[in-house]
Computed example of a mutant assay.
Amino acid sequence: MRGYPILLASLLVMIALPSSAADLSAQLNQFFKARDPQHAAGINVLVRTPKTQWPECDAPRFSLPGNSRLWGNMSVAANCDQNRRYIQVQVQVSGQYLVAKRQLVRGTSVKQNDFRMQSGRLDTLPARTLFNSDSVADAVVLRDIQPGQPVSLSMLRQPWRVKAGQNVTVIASGEGFDASSEGKALNNATRAQWVRVRMANGQIVSGRVSDDGNVLITL
Protein backbone atom coordinates (compact mmCIF):
# COMPACT_ATOMS: atom_id res chain seq x y z
CA MET A 1 0.00 0.00 0.00
CA ARG A 2 2.84 2.43 0.83
CA GLY A 3 4.11 2.09 -2.77
CA TYR A 4 0.83 3.33 -4.26
CA PRO A 5 1.52 7.09 -3.79
CA ILE A 6 4.88 6.74 -5.55
CA LEU A 7 3.34 4.69 -8.35
CA LEU A 8 0.51 7.21 -8.72
CA ALA A 9 2.94 10.13 -8.88
CA SER A 10 4.95 8.36 -11.58
CA LEU A 11 1.85 7.73 -13.64
CA LEU A 12 0.80 11.37 -13.34
CA VAL A 13 4.20 12.52 -14.63
CA MET A 14 3.98 10.12 -17.57
CA ILE A 15 0.52 11.44 -18.42
CA ALA A 16 1.50 15.09 -18.02
CA LEU A 17 4.44 14.99 -20.43
CA PRO A 18 2.50 13.88 -23.53
CA SER A 19 -0.24 16.36 -22.62
CA SER A 20 2.29 19.22 -22.54
CA ALA A 21 3.74 18.06 -25.86
CA ALA A 22 0.30 17.90 -27.40
CA ASP A 23 -0.56 21.37 -26.07
CA LEU A 24 2.52 23.05 -27.59
CA SER A 25 2.05 21.26 -30.90
CA ALA A 26 -1.63 22.20 -30.99
CA GLN A 27 -0.85 25.83 -30.16
CA LEU A 28 1.77 26.04 -32.91
CA ASN A 29 -0.59 24.41 -35.40
CA GLN A 30 -3.26 26.96 -34.49
CA PHE A 31 -0.74 29.82 -34.85
CA PHE A 32 0.37 28.79 -38.35
CA LYS A 33 -3.14 27.98 -39.54
CA ALA A 34 -4.30 31.46 -38.49
CA ARG A 35 -1.30 32.90 -40.35
CA ASP A 36 -2.20 31.11 -43.61
CA PRO A 37 -5.96 30.45 -43.63
CA GLN A 38 -5.95 29.59 -47.34
CA HIS A 39 -3.99 26.38 -46.65
CA ALA A 40 -5.04 25.84 -43.01
CA ALA A 41 -6.66 22.46 -43.68
CA GLY A 42 -3.37 21.00 -44.94
CA ILE A 43 -0.97 22.44 -42.34
CA ASN A 44 0.91 20.20 -39.90
CA VAL A 45 3.61 21.62 -37.61
CA LEU A 46 6.42 19.37 -36.33
CA VAL A 47 8.35 20.64 -33.29
CA ARG A 48 12.10 19.99 -33.67
CA THR A 49 13.33 21.57 -30.43
CA PRO A 50 13.89 19.14 -27.49
CA LYS A 51 11.26 19.31 -24.74
CA THR A 52 13.84 20.51 -22.21
CA GLN A 53 14.09 23.77 -24.19
CA TRP A 54 10.37 24.42 -24.54
CA PRO A 55 8.73 27.49 -22.94
CA GLU A 56 7.70 27.00 -19.35
CA CYS A 57 4.34 28.81 -19.42
CA ASP A 58 1.08 27.19 -20.50
CA ALA A 59 0.21 29.71 -23.23
CA PRO A 60 3.32 31.26 -24.82
CA ARG A 61 2.89 34.10 -27.32
CA PHE A 62 4.40 33.16 -30.69
CA SER A 63 5.96 35.59 -33.14
CA LEU A 64 7.97 35.53 -36.37
CA PRO A 65 10.09 38.09 -38.23
CA GLY A 66 8.08 40.00 -40.81
CA ASN A 67 9.97 38.46 -43.75
CA SER A 68 9.51 34.84 -42.68
CA ARG A 69 8.46 32.27 -45.24
CA LEU A 70 5.04 30.68 -44.90
CA TRP A 71 6.24 27.06 -44.72
CA GLY A 72 9.27 24.87 -44.23
CA ASN A 73 11.91 24.98 -41.50
CA MET A 74 11.86 28.09 -39.34
CA SER A 75 12.43 29.47 -35.86
CA VAL A 76 9.46 30.71 -33.81
CA ALA A 77 9.89 33.05 -30.85
CA ALA A 78 7.88 31.78 -27.86
CA ASN A 79 7.41 34.50 -25.24
CA CYS A 80 6.48 33.88 -21.59
CA ASP A 81 6.41 37.31 -19.92
CA GLN A 82 10.08 38.41 -19.99
CA ASN A 83 11.38 34.99 -20.94
CA ARG A 84 11.83 34.26 -24.65
CA ARG A 85 12.78 30.97 -26.23
CA TYR A 86 13.16 30.03 -29.86
CA ILE A 87 11.42 26.89 -31.06
CA GLN A 88 12.60 25.16 -34.24
CA VAL A 89 9.68 23.84 -36.27
CA GLN A 90 8.93 22.35 -39.66
CA VAL A 91 5.69 23.61 -41.15
CA GLN A 92 4.41 20.97 -43.56
CA VAL A 93 1.59 21.83 -45.94
CA SER A 94 -0.42 19.54 -48.21
CA GLY A 95 -2.53 20.83 -51.08
CA GLN A 96 -2.83 21.09 -54.83
CA TYR A 97 -0.37 22.60 -57.27
CA LEU A 98 -0.02 22.96 -61.04
CA VAL A 99 1.94 20.49 -63.20
CA ALA A 100 2.39 20.11 -66.95
CA LYS A 101 0.32 17.43 -68.70
CA ARG A 102 2.85 17.07 -71.50
CA GLN A 103 6.24 18.41 -72.52
CA LEU A 104 6.01 22.16 -73.05
CA VAL A 105 8.68 23.57 -75.33
CA ARG A 106 10.38 26.90 -74.79
CA GLY A 107 8.88 29.73 -76.85
CA THR A 108 5.47 28.12 -77.40
CA SER A 109 2.13 29.48 -76.22
CA VAL A 110 0.09 27.33 -73.84
CA LYS A 111 -3.55 26.90 -72.81
CA GLN A 112 -5.16 25.91 -69.53
CA ASN A 113 -5.71 22.35 -70.77
CA ASP A 114 -1.93 21.89 -71.06
CA PHE A 115 -1.87 21.66 -67.25
CA ARG A 116 -3.50 19.69 -64.44
CA MET A 117 -3.71 19.93 -60.68
CA GLN A 118 -1.79 17.47 -58.50
CA SER A 119 -1.94 16.87 -54.76
CA GLY A 120 1.16 16.74 -52.57
CA ARG A 121 3.46 18.57 -50.18
CA LEU A 122 3.54 22.28 -51.00
CA ASP A 123 6.40 23.14 -48.64
CA THR A 124 8.88 21.04 -50.65
CA LEU A 125 8.08 22.69 -54.00
CA PRO A 126 10.29 25.26 -55.78
CA ALA A 127 9.68 28.93 -55.00
CA ARG A 128 6.74 30.64 -56.77
CA THR A 129 5.09 27.35 -57.80
CA LEU A 130 1.57 28.01 -59.14
CA PHE A 131 -1.41 26.69 -57.18
CA ASN A 132 -4.03 27.29 -59.90
CA SER A 133 -4.25 27.73 -63.68
CA ASP A 134 -5.80 31.20 -63.66
CA SER A 135 -2.80 32.99 -65.18
CA VAL A 136 -1.48 30.41 -67.67
CA ALA A 137 -3.88 30.86 -70.61
CA ASP A 138 -1.99 32.23 -73.65
CA ALA A 139 1.24 32.42 -71.61
CA VAL A 140 4.59 31.84 -73.32
CA VAL A 141 6.94 29.12 -72.04
CA LEU A 142 10.37 30.51 -71.07
CA ARG A 143 12.11 27.12 -70.72
CA ASP A 144 11.25 23.49 -71.45
CA ILE A 145 8.85 21.96 -68.92
CA GLN A 146 8.65 18.18 -68.54
CA PRO A 147 5.41 16.17 -68.07
CA GLY A 148 4.43 16.12 -64.39
CA GLN A 149 6.89 18.89 -63.49
CA PRO A 150 5.60 21.56 -61.06
CA VAL A 151 5.08 24.85 -62.88
CA SER A 152 6.46 28.04 -61.33
CA LEU A 153 5.84 31.65 -62.23
CA SER A 154 9.41 32.00 -63.52
CA MET A 155 8.75 29.38 -66.24
CA LEU A 156 6.08 31.45 -68.01
CA ARG A 157 5.40 34.98 -69.11
CA GLN A 158 2.27 36.70 -70.34
CA PRO A 159 2.12 37.50 -74.09
CA TRP A 160 3.40 40.90 -75.19
CA ARG A 161 0.64 43.48 -75.52
CA VAL A 162 3.15 45.97 -76.89
CA LYS A 163 6.43 45.32 -78.75
CA ALA A 164 9.44 47.56 -79.20
CA GLY A 165 9.09 49.66 -82.38
CA GLN A 166 5.29 49.32 -82.46
CA ASN A 167 3.13 52.41 -82.90
CA VAL A 168 0.89 52.84 -79.86
CA THR A 169 -1.81 55.20 -78.64
CA VAL A 170 -0.88 57.10 -75.50
CA ILE A 171 -3.84 58.22 -73.40
CA ALA A 172 -3.13 60.83 -70.73
CA SER A 173 -5.78 61.58 -68.13
CA GLY A 174 -6.04 64.00 -65.25
CA GLU A 175 -8.61 65.91 -63.30
CA GLY A 176 -11.30 66.89 -65.78
CA PHE A 177 -9.49 66.02 -69.02
CA ASP A 178 -8.32 63.22 -71.32
CA ALA A 179 -5.94 63.51 -74.25
CA SER A 180 -4.49 60.99 -76.67
CA SER A 181 -1.58 60.97 -79.06
CA GLU A 182 0.56 58.55 -81.05
CA GLY A 183 4.04 57.35 -80.26
CA LYS A 184 6.49 54.46 -80.71
CA ALA A 185 7.12 51.87 -78.00
CA LEU A 186 10.75 51.52 -76.92
CA ASN A 187 10.43 48.15 -75.12
CA ASN A 188 8.29 45.04 -74.98
CA ALA A 189 5.61 44.93 -72.27
CA THR A 190 2.78 42.68 -71.15
CA ARG A 191 -0.57 43.87 -69.83
CA ALA A 192 -0.16 46.21 -66.82
CA GLN A 193 3.62 46.50 -67.28
CA TRP A 194 5.41 49.81 -67.79
CA VAL A 195 6.50 50.80 -71.29
CA ARG A 196 8.53 53.76 -72.51
CA VAL A 197 7.19 55.60 -75.56
CA ARG A 198 8.87 58.15 -77.84
CA MET A 199 6.31 60.74 -78.90
CA ALA A 200 6.25 62.50 -82.28
CA ASN A 201 8.01 65.56 -80.81
CA GLY A 202 10.84 63.40 -79.46
CA GLN A 203 9.69 63.44 -75.83
CA ILE A 204 9.88 60.11 -73.99
CA VAL A 205 7.06 59.22 -71.62
CA SER A 206 6.26 56.13 -69.52
CA GLY A 207 2.91 54.50 -68.87
CA ARG A 208 1.16 51.22 -68.16
CA VAL A 209 -0.16 48.96 -70.90
CA SER A 210 -3.93 48.43 -70.89
CA ASP A 211 -5.75 45.25 -71.94
CA ASP A 212 -6.24 46.62 -75.45
CA GLY A 213 -2.59 47.66 -75.91
CA ASN A 214 -2.95 51.39 -75.26
CA VAL A 215 -0.51 53.15 -72.96
CA LEU A 216 -2.14 54.90 -69.99
CA ILE A 217 -0.60 57.88 -68.23
CA THR A 218 -2.13 59.57 -65.19
CA LEU A 219 -1.20 63.22 -64.68
Rank of each mutant, 00 (worst) to 15 (best):
V168T: 03
A189N: 02
L156A: 11
V110E: 05
N188D: 15
T124G: 04
V141T: 09
Q118T: 12
S133I: 03
V136L: 09
N113I: 08
Q149S: 15
S173H: 14
I171E: 07
Q193R: 04
W160G: 00
P126T: 05
R191L: 03
S135A: 15
L130N: 00
G176I: 09
L153Q: 13
R128W: 04
S135I: 13
A164M: 08
G120V: 01
G183F: 03
A185H: 02
R102M: 09
R157A: 15
Q118G: 04
N113D: 15
A189W: 01
T124K: 08
K163H: 08
S173A: 14
I145N: 01
N167Q: 15
Q166V: 11
G107W: 03
L186S: 03
V151E: 00
T129A: 12
N167D: 12
R106D: 02
F131C: 00
T108P: 02
L142D: 06
W160C: 00
A127E: 02
Q166H: 12
L142V: 12
V105P: 06
A172M: 12
K184P: 02
F177K: 10
G120C: 01
T124M: 06
T190I: 02
G174Y: 10
A164Q: 11
Q146V: 12
S109P: 01
S181H: 01
S119Q: 11
E175R: 15
M155W: 02
R128G: 01
P147I: 10
S152R: 04
N167E: 14
N188S: 08
L156I: 13
T190R: 06
K163C: 05
G176K: 11
N187T: 11
N187L: 07
M117G: 03
D134A: 15
G174H: 11
P147V: 10
T129C: 07
K184N: 09
Q166D: 06
S180H: 14
T108E: 09
S109I: 02
L156W: 07
T129Q: 02
S180A: 14
V168I: 15
G174M: 10
L186V: 07
K184D: 01
Q149C: 14
Q166N: 09
S109G: 04
F131S: 00
N132D: 12
R106C: 05
G174E: 09
D134R: 15
A189K: 01
G107S: 05
D114P: 10
R143Q: 14
L104D: 01
W160H: 01
N167I: 12
T108Y: 04
A179Y: 10
P159G: 07
R161G: 06
Q158N: 10
F177G: 07
R121W: 02
V168L: 13
M155I: 08
D114F: 09
A137I: 09
R128Q: 07
S109M: 04
R102W: 12
S109Q: 08
I145M: 08
K111M: 12
V170F: 11
V162D: 00
R157F: 13
E182S: 15
S154N: 14
T169Y: 12
V105A: 14
